[in-house]
Design a protein around this nucleic acid. Structure first.
Lengths: 335, 335
DNA sequence: CACATTCTTGCAAGCGCTTGCAAGGACATT
DNA sequence: AATGTCCTTGCAAGCGCTTGCAAGAATGTG
């Protein structure tokens, strides 16, 4: 190798790794030789010897879903800032793949792990914790004792959104849930109940319809709600995608949004801000969540045994053009 | 390790790697022990010893840009099908990062490389080729002798698009170019000239405005065109994003699309299909390009010295609602 | 039954780099 | 001038796995 600089292998290694206690002259000689020979350290060998790969793994279900892609974007940025590489693994929603990847990745492939919306957590969390392997969960809303978690304030955000609708004058507010196996879905529902309770509105079970975060189901659910004998004046969908489904159902049912029906989503995916949609929604800071998760992971990498923390990021109510006071409200309201 | 099965390390390795010449009984014993002990091979060590990492690297400029993200999606799918891992590196458009990543990745980090829209190719291509390192370029439209390339039929696709506009009756067709440092931009421009020439229409230089694929510049360019003494009746933008800029400029200038102005884009990003936009465009099969590139890479992995090939994927003209015959055309045309 | 073949399996030499240890040299201190 | 310190640098032992080689076991052949 670069022992054409007339030094031993160890010294080259020390130069490459920027060790102290290397003579300035030697260092320069080695660097010159490296440049000349175009020497590039063998990443794998280095990883094996040092035990560190300088890479972190990101485990997600999909890459193109607008939810994941924004989180990934944030992660990517932060990882590259920190001078790490990113190994991206997608499970394509195949639950069993998750534990498999975790095992592989945590065994010398990457130094730490970021898991977005874990689906098979119980299968491997004990192992990871026992080894003090650094990992951070993103958007995990179930209980996971001793895990570092980053998520949005699903409950508070939803509560704020519903409270806003109530403030506009709505009393019958439909709720389309998210996928039941996702913790965030439950949190959002709790936020809905909380807001109703705080306003002293009796919860009407017929106004709650199960959804799955997707547009198609959102459409169906909205149809059901709109066909009710006493339909809601506003509908909250647990995701923007579902909210788009609601918008479609409203259009097809001939109700004008927001005149006849207010629609509020959750997420603030990029499409929500397009002029054609202008969806009012509860913004979840996905990119920041990715970034923060990386920061947390970096901190764990430096100090693996620190106590676990749960980071809850504030949401933001984004009011666009799909929400308004219910018809007749202004008239009815004394002022 | 799993020598609790009473066999040597080599045998374990042979079982893990599915070698022939392992006694069935031994194999089962080892597998049982592995399961029991939860043995997971150390990826890095294995890579160092075998020289193969079972991972491929994907180098792109960004991840969230709709162009890249779709390609990445295709790559991701194909890679996971092939049972490889994906190491994703983003240069964030910092040109010098590219060669750096290539060097690192090709030195033991991954078995092969996919480079989307290479920007600093000359800096490392010689090295890669000298080492017979397997790599495939995606959307590289300049000449790169001896390189495996996958891209869209930028020239033919554009020609077809322009020919379609001509067929509608347009004679003055504006053209907004892409970024000049991207080969595809030149190809698309050539397609434009070809189509005009074939139809016997004299090229009018004032109808060609430089753009950069982005929406903002598309808006500006369209303004320029619309302010011309004899403005075009149709504008082709070298990307959908730019086409959206054109749409905006048309709106602000009070011209109705497609009545007063036809707009044709290139790419068919997801936004183009949204009802609010309904942009006519030349579809580039980005996902398929990603997939095909992986297949090609896998083939190179198996046989690194095979002759290089250039795969040109057909585009498809997608007609939505931003293109129509120019006003007065039907009247003027005898029928 | 002796010998040739084919299976199985262990041995040990790496893969290319990191790093603890110790030795040699330079410099400072008394 | 002798001794103590601190700098530098090389040595060599790994990191955990793969794999060519060869030996021993099992099976086949005449």
């Amino acid at each position: 190798m670069a022992r054409s600089a007339g030094v031993s292998y160890s010294t080259v290694s020390r130069v490459v790794n920027d060790y102290a206690h290397v003579n300035e002259g030697t260092r320069e000689r080695v660097q010159a030789a490296m440049r000349e020979l175009g020497y590039v350290a063998h990443v794998t060998a280095r990883a094996l010897a040092s035990g560190r790969t300088q890479a972190i793994g990101l485990l997600a279900q999909e890459i193109d879903n607008p939810f994941f892609s924004v989180v990934i974007k944030g992660v990517d940025q932060a990882v590259s800032m920190a001078d790490y590489d990113l190994l991206l693994c997608t499970t394509h929603s195949r639950r069993e793949k998750e534990a498999e990847y975790v095992a592989r990745l945590s065994h010398g492939m990457v130094d730490g792990l970021l898991i977005v919306l874990p689906a098979g957590l119980p299968e491997y969390v004990a192992q990871l914790r026992a080894e003090d392997y650094p990992f951070v969960l993103i958007d995990h809303d179930s209980d996971a004792p001793g895990c570092n978690v980053v998520n949005a304030a699903n409950r508070d955000g939803t509560r704020e959104g519903i409270a806003y609708l109530i403030g506009l004058g709505h009393r019958r507010i439909g709720f389309i849930t998210g996928r039941q196996d996702v913790g965030a879905a439950h949190e959002r529902f709790s936020g809905y109940r909380d807001a109703l309770a705080e306003a002293g509105i009796r919860a009407d079970e017929s106004l709650v319809v199960e959804g799955d975060f997707l547009e198609a189901r959102g459409y169906e659910a909205a149809r059901e709600l709109l066909l009710l004998p006493h339909p809601p004046t506003a509908i909250f969908a647990s995701s923007d995608a579902a909210a788009f489904g609601v918008l479609g159902a409203a259009r097809d049912a001939g109700s004008q949004v927001p005149r006849d029906l207010s629609v509020l989503g959750f997420d603030d995916i990029i499409e929500a801000s397009y002029p054609g949609a202008a969806l009012s929604t509860v913004r979840q800071p996905l990119r920041e969540m990715g970034r923060v998760a990386v920061q947390r992971l970096m901190s764990l990498l430096a100090e693996p045994t620190q106590p676990a923390a749960r980071l809850v990021m504030d949401t933001e109510l984004v009011i666009r053009q799909t929400t308004a006071p219910p018809t007749g409200w202004a008239a009815r309201r004394p002022r």
